[in-house]
């Protein structure tokens, strides 16, 4: 079992967990993820490793409650334990040196972007960040990002905080106003990463995206996370999770990630309103 040692609430639907995982903590690198199972009936879900503390043997995750499992996770607190945590998985982010880099985070993607941003800064790059969210509550880690960047820009879709608009609006302006942007790292919802890749393509700026595909095992066994990259079939878990954004078939992946939408809704509905479903529990099994 993997004990939750500490939890804080970054936004009503975005919580940060510090979890005891002594084998994983010393091996974590930016870009790695873990697979987690909450309880014995749980599904295995991939979550990006945000940070780790080798001395304490802990890892940090930031979770946005979206589906059944992530919302269930938000109900857990310090002292509770998770059934399974395995990792670190996936290839670490290749950290460039001597470049001018823009790190673009959308929503909870900012949490995943933070360790990469920090590593890029520590490697001596000039680093800018653009972090966005639908609304003010979903803009997270602004202070942390500011601490590891030359400048950090904030956007919200509804204008409730920072610049009103999308991260891509800010990105285009930044590329145009800052000479020599050579690389962009983008992590967020798939449509956002697709849009970022579309912005950078005409400039020929190397763009790295982190793909959150549906996975079962996370170790290359199921093939559920397959994505088309430059026309080739890749597994996001072992070949990624990061790929060249200009080569990813985002439309296909967006469709694939909707493959379980109906089941996900049913599972969430049952979790949020268990009383309505009691009659079905244990039946016809």
């Amino acid at each position: 079992m993997f004990e939750i040692l500490h939890k804080d609430i970054l936004a009503p639907t975005v919580h940060r967990f510090v979890i005891r995982a002594p084998f994983i903590a010393p091996k974590r690198k930016p870009g790695n993820f873990i697979m987690l199972r909450i309880d014995r009936n749980g599904e295995r879900i991939p979550l990006t490793l945000v940070d780790s503390n080798v001395a304490d043997g802990t890892i940090t995750l930031i979770v946005q409650g979206i589906g059944k499992s992530t919302r269930q996770l938000l109900t857990m607190n310090a002292g509770d334990s998770l059934q399974d945590v395995v990792g670190p998985l996936g290839n670490p982010t290749p950290i460039l040196t001597g470049q001018t880099v823009v790190c673009v985070g959308g929503g909870v993607g900012t949490a995943e972007l933070y360790p990469i941003t920090k590593a890029l800064r520590e490697a001596g790059n000039t680093v800018y960040a653009i972090i966005g969210g639908r609304t003010k509550d979903l803009v997270i880690l602004e202070n942390e990002m500011r601490a590891v960047t030359t400048d950090t820009f904030v956007t919200t879709d509804d204008g409730s905080y920072g610049r009103k608009g999308l991260v891509t609006d800010q990105l285009k302006d930044l590329i145009d106003s800052t000479s020599g942007v050579t690389a962009v790292y983008a992590i967020g919802p798939l449509p956002m990463m697709k849009a970022v890749s579309a912005v950078t393509r005409p400039y020929g700026i190397h763009t790295v995206v982190s793909l959150n595909a549906i996975m079962v095992d996370g170790t290359g066994m199921c093939g559920g996370c397959r994505v088309s990259v430059n026309g080739q079939m890749k597994f996001a878990c072992v070949d990624g999770p990061e790929f060249d954004g200009h080569q990813v078939d985002f439309d296909e992946l967006i469709m694939r990630n909707r493959g379980y939408a109906g089941d996900e809704r049913a599972s969430l509905e049952r979790f949020e309103h268990p009383a309505d479903h009691e009659c079905r529990m244990g039946g016809s099994k």
Binding site: E43, R44, V216, D217, M221, M233, R258, Y260, D263, S267
Partner: peptide, 30 residues
Amino acid sequence: ENLIGVYSANEFLTRVNLMKAYKFPDYDTP
């Protein structure tokens, strides 16, 4: 092969055998 509804046998069997998807939604994996 990347259409929704195409599985590797590994994924299909892992969902059912290891993750007990045949007991969804009592088990979370569909």
